[in-house]
Nucleic acid binder design. Structure first.
Lengths: 186, 186
DNA sequence: TTGAATGCAAAGGATTTGCAGAGGC
DNA sequence: GCCTCTGCAAATCCTTTGCATTCAA
């Protein structure tokens, strides 16, 4: 019996056809609208505008499924002065909008905000390698049982959760072993 | 069957006899050394010194079992100028030492560092009320199973984990209901 | 046209650091 | 007396804000 799985939960199709996407441990779930369409609805329903900056960031953010922070996103943008450049404040403002629109989830890691896809992406948790910083996704159905049983015990209304398991990933463990052997020989 | 419990795991005795302590949902576990003794060993083993500031903070931090951040700890200190005052940089430096010595655990909440007892305190996780900010502790044995099964699947060496379930606590839910009724009447 | 969105510069909040003086051992 | 520790001030890091200008609708 396995309490967890990193396999795909549904025979999913990528909603972002026609874009290359970074490799990721989970596969997007088929959804009714693309992120761009959903964000369009979000903007319209609030009298907000579809600007070049928002379009640019939408494309960048949903061209892959990697976790990222504001800095990493900025690095992938054209340099200041170039066409397509978006300023840092606008990046932060837009990321907050994506979160508000339900497209992204935000969480804290080592004092900084990390973002990941939410819309059309399966619920999952993370292994965090403290050596190389890598985030590995995994899925675990048992957690829902824990959540509901804890919730009922405390009369608590659960909105969301965040589970991060820290330790050393396989590649880093191998590297360490190699180093240790070297040290032993000296 | 219950996947979790907030009861005490061991017929524990408080190691901090002779000090008043704040109420907390879990009870400390009996340990060989008091936190002060353990910290003394830590200092000595590294050629570090036992100063008034470190003693002061040790007493404050281990006089209760509440979660706290650097600010809250500072507020409980004598004011600047008064005997027993400890400066902010020293508070941060000393908290880092407590973490390093295994006395405290540190985690992030809403962009700030929160500390809680680790040494002599049972492993637990948290419910976080997004309304009032309260942290409620709970224990869950099932989590160890999840951790080990995920770890073996990914060849991951687990060092620790952090699970925070966010939502609305019972008191806040009741308050909300009251407010809603009032609004309905208008 | 007109108000929302942007970019700039600057502020903000939490935490850290350099350094000269204070104080354990 | 030596060397660590402290407090001060200032720096750092990430993120947010005020405001004049730009631009989508």
């Amino acid at each position: 019996m396995s309490a967890s799985s990193s396999k795909t939960v549904e025979p999913a199709h990528n909603v972002h056809d026609g874009r290359e996407r970074a490799k990721s441990s989970l596969t997007p779930v088929r959804v009714a609208l693309t992120p761009a369409q959903r964000f369009g609805d979000y903007l319209q329903s609030r009298g907000m505008r579809s600007t070049q900056q928002r379009q640019m960031l939408l494309e960048l953010v949903f061209s892959g499924h990697e976790h990222f922070d504001a800095d990493q996103l900025m690095e992938r943008l054209p340099a200041k002065g170039k066409h397509g450049y978006v300023s840092r404040p606008t990046v932060y403002r837009t990321l907050a909008e994506f979160v508000d629109a339900g497209l992204l989830r935000k969480f804290e890691l080592k004092g900084r905000s990390v973002y990941e896809h939410d819309y059309g992406y399966p619920q999952h948790d993370h292994l965090h390698c403290t050596e190389c910083g890598k985030l590995i996704e995994f899925q675990c159905e048992t957690l829902s049982d824990i959540k509901s049983s804890v919730a009922s015990e405390h009369g608590f209304q659960v909105r969301s959760h965040r589970l991060i398991i820290s330790g050393i990933c396989q590649p880093c463990r191998k590297k360490r072993r190699r180093v240790r052997r070297k040290v032993d020989r000296i």
